[in-house]
Design a protein around this nucleic acid. Structure first.
Length: 284
DNA sequence: GCGATCCTGGCC
DNA sequence: GGCCAGGATCGC
């Protein structure tokens, strides 16, 4: 039972990553004493020894987020970049704590507090950057603007969308190079809010409809952050608190039921090996 | 653009 | 045992 309570899963999209970031802000300003890596840590283009020696003794200036990446910015613009993949999670402890199974990284600060990164499936990644704008990190450099970034204007978005006429709208939303931050849940919810069929191709979609889609995505992500993320299975933020966004999902996971607002029946289809939930009555 | 693939764990 | 899972990359 105890194991069950403490063993949680966390498969994050932009709002869950943002809420994790917000919940960890108290570590800003702390100095890193030590990094401990597991042999299976999902390192991307960096050696464990380099990782350990790079950060030791550096002050953590700022915790940032870009799309679904958390960025620990240390002094001298040296950054540790974490992607949580499907099963990654971060957890803060005020003092030494027993590591959960699949803990791949521990950040241990001078005041004794720690942050643990665990990831059962290891779809996540740990990487580095030595540039202020992270342009030396290919994972970040190839991303489109975040959907909730005020700099993502409709004009920019439309141009990016029109480069992929044959893409269906669901795949469009999940493509992080066009615009970043949406995952399977928020993509389904955005399409619902925009009243658009996930199977519709970009070339069949009017400018006006793409505008609605962008607005819907911004709205859904904002709500997700406000509600502390989706704790549908067991998402917890860095302090172990649940979000309540699952109580606002209109279509995701509701196959065979009505939409949350009761406007119609929800269907499930599979697109690119991912489930898509939508309401055919409303989404055209 | 699409399908296979990387992994572990929970649930039926 | 088989299927499913909040992600992203790689090769065709």
């Amino acid at each position: 039972l105890v194991k069950k309570v403490f063993f949680f899963f966390f498969m994050p999209e932009l709002p869950e990553v943002e809420c994790t970031r917000l919940s960890l802000q108290q570590i800003e300003g702390l100095t890193l004493k030590e990094i401990i890596l597991s042999p299976l840590a999902p390192l991307k283009k960096v050696q464990g020894n380099t990782m350990r020696s790079t950060f030791q003794g550096l002050k953590l200036e700022k915790l940032k987020r870009r799309s679904k990446y958390l960025i620990f910015v240390f002094e001298k613009d040296i950054s540790l970049i974490i992607h949580l993949g499907m099963s990654g999670r971060l957890r803060y402890y005020s003092k030494k704590a027993e590591a959960l199974k699949h803990t791949h990284l521990k950040l241990i600060f001078n005041n004794g507090s720690q942050v643990h990164y665990t990831d059962a499936r290891r779809f996540g990644s740990l990487s580095l950057s030595f540039q202020k704008n992270f342009s030396d990190n290919p994972l970040l450099d190839n991303l489109g603007l975040d959907y909730n970034d005020p700099n993502l204007t409709f004009k920019t978005y439309l141009k990016a969308c029109r480069r992929h006429p044959k893409l269906n709208l669901k795949s469009l939303l999940l493509n992080q190079k066009i615009a970043a931050g949406l995952g399977n849940i928020y993509a389904c919810e955005s399409l619902y809010q925009a009243h658009l069929d996930p199977r519709k191709l970009v070339e069949e979609t009017k400018d006006e409809e793409l505008k609605k889609l962008l607005q819907a995505a911004k709205k859904v992500l904002k709500l997700g952050i406000q509600q502390g993320g989706v704790s549908l299975r067991d998402y917890l933020n860095g302090l172990g608190h649940r979000g309540v966004m699952q109580n606002y999902l209109q279509v995701y996971g509701r196959e065979g039921k009505t939409t949350l607002d009761g406007q119609g029946q929800v269907s499930k289809i599979v697109q690119n090996q991912r489930g898509t939930w939508f309401c055919p009555k409303i989404q055209l």
